[in-house]
Amino acid sequence: MELCSFLTLDSFITDPLTHDFMRKALLMSSLVAAVCGFLSSYLTLKGWALMGDAVSHSVMPGVVVAYALGLPFSLGAFIFGVGSVALIGFIKQKSRVKEDTVIGLVFTGFFALGIVLVSKIKSNIDLHSILFGSPLGISLSDVKQTIFISLLVVILLSIFRKDLMLYCFDPRHAKTVGINVLFLHYLLLTCLSLAAVVGLQSVGIILVVAMLITPGATAYLLTDKFDSMTIISVLSAIISSLIGIYISFWFDLETGGSIVLAQTFVFLFAFLFAPRYGIFKLKKFFAGYK
């Protein structure tokens, strides 16, 4: 029966919309994708992919502790996300160990702590939904939290859009003309932690880093303008997220994995066919026909 209705594009799109949980999942995932996609431009240009991975894994114990104490899980996640970065900075400064090693070491430590805590606390925490996301089973309080955090991040990024671009591009100039570089550093870090928190509901802790870097990387291949890069990044994130959820609905696949896989395919498409920076330089190809 499923296969039959699948044959018309119309019902392929509209059928899932008859389900309340699907409407909610599509809306929330689009919002989360938009936030992560917005931030993604900055992270990929700043070279913070590994930092994104670290922060998103490090929020694990925070989520668990917050659940156990009955606090909003975003609060716990935020504290541990920022804490991990502070710890990375501290160890790097006080030891001779190289930065990428310190990052790997700290976030795996935090992540392991989270897993151990889950096994010890044994409340109604669903380890699977933390690790792999559960956009279909998102609760009302989680919806409120997600909307609040998303708006906060979007507002912060919008206000400091140009300053953050300058910070990524040339922090030395920013400092020279009296712009508070340290503030921008922590602002970007705060937004990263918050985006990781909302992102993990869609795709889970393990894959949330993909939400934070893949859309930016895709957009980077498609444009030479920063503003267009941000817009393309947000759009590609939203589209991938919608495709992922639909595919997972019809083929009964893990939702988080499907969303990230859709993003990866969008990236591969850009990688191959981007007009200027793709493997097959389509712009040159078509120019040859004129």
Binding site: M165, F169, K225
Partner: peptide, 17 residues
Amino acid sequence: QFPINVWDVVMMGRYGS
């Protein structure tokens, strides 16, 4: 390779004020 053009780089000289 940063996605920025000449005008926007030079405009950054004015950011501080």
